[in-house]
Write a protein that binds this DNA or RNA. Structure first.
Lengths: 167, 167
DNA sequence: ATAAACTTTCATCTTTTTTTGAAAGTTTAA
DNA sequence: TTAAACTTTCAAAAAAAGATGAAAGTTTAT
């Protein structure tokens, strides 16, 4: 396999993986592109490489920056903006974990807490509902705490976790 | 909040959470419905409760069974099929972890291995590509191994993990 | 074997998500 | 200022994903 083919395969696959996890394909592709680039890339080049429109590139780059995993960079003398990805994988994992916790897990926990604490549990059905959603709350809360710990460890959390879990 | 409202809120929220993680909304809603049901539910009742068509119910129930988190149940005397969810959360997590590993992580690893082992790394650009995708391969491989361990522990893996990680 | 009671399939329709591109907005240099 | 060089916004178009429902398929009881 030659370089260009490999590069393309990587970008496409990363995009496909992203969409299976609720991340827009183009966003994941841009991220992939930046991950393997040695230097900051201009919007023009991203558009060219992925064959996407200016608007699309702009919006997805903004989203990546909102996630805190892509940064703007200015080159002296150059008027246009360049983009660079967070390349440290531990840092990347932490950022993503933090963000998904904030955006999705926390709101879900809020709902689970609300619905699992209704007072009117007379029937079997209602008792079971309260019990089941309560268990779910505990479970999701624990899982979220693991994400927090990941954030805390920060450097090489995965390696540390692997060592611990492997006993 | 009364029971019916809480139930509806839970089903809707679970559906929304699902779609943020690449799981079709209706599939997640059916799963939510079955999770909180004391007894097996017929397709008819699912259609009625979620206001969806027969075809939709059929296809999503099939998908849930493919994931191994919903089972068919036959009631004596009754001709129609009833459905019941895996209610043990540890078991549920294990099933999902296993399935996503098989369907998504493993294929991604295959691609990462392929592209990170191309031989023609002459330029800086190519060297960096090989290095970066190689790191990604190691990282994803380790993360996937954690999923395997989760499967191995099976009972109360999350609690055990929490204890270990909290030191 | 027949028919009633169900379930599955899939071409087509609907909804949601993503993309486009041109106008509006912003920044910089002169 | 003005205008060139860029970026952002957003209404409209396109693409992708999901839902429908009726016909085909299956199972069971008689």
């Amino acid at each position: 396999m030659e370089f260009k083919e490999a590069k393309n395969k990587f970008v496409q696959s990363w995009g496909a993986l992203g969409s299976q996890w609720g991340i827009n394909k183009t966003m994941a592709q841009i991220h992939a592109l930046l991950m393997i680039s040695t230097e900051a890339v201009s919007m023009e080049d991203i558009m060219e490489e992925l064959q996407i429109s200016r608007g699309n590139a702009s919006m997805n780059l903004r989203a990546l920056m909102d996630w805190g995993i892509v940064y703007k960079e200015y080159k002296p003398g150059e008027r246009k903006e360049f983009f660079i990805a967070e390349k440290d994988l531990d840092e990347l994992a932490v950022k993503i974990a933090k963000e998904r916790s904030k955006r999705e897990i926390k709101p879900a926990l809020k709902v689970l807490k609300e619905v699992s604490t209704i007072k009117t549990n007379k029937t079997e059905e209602e008792k079971h509902f309260v019990e089941q959603t309560g268990k779910l709350y505990d479970f999701v809360l624990k899982a979220d705490n693991v994400l927090d710990k990941v954030t805390e460890y920060k450097d090489n959390w995965l390696a540390k976790l692997v060592i611990k879990i492997m006993k």
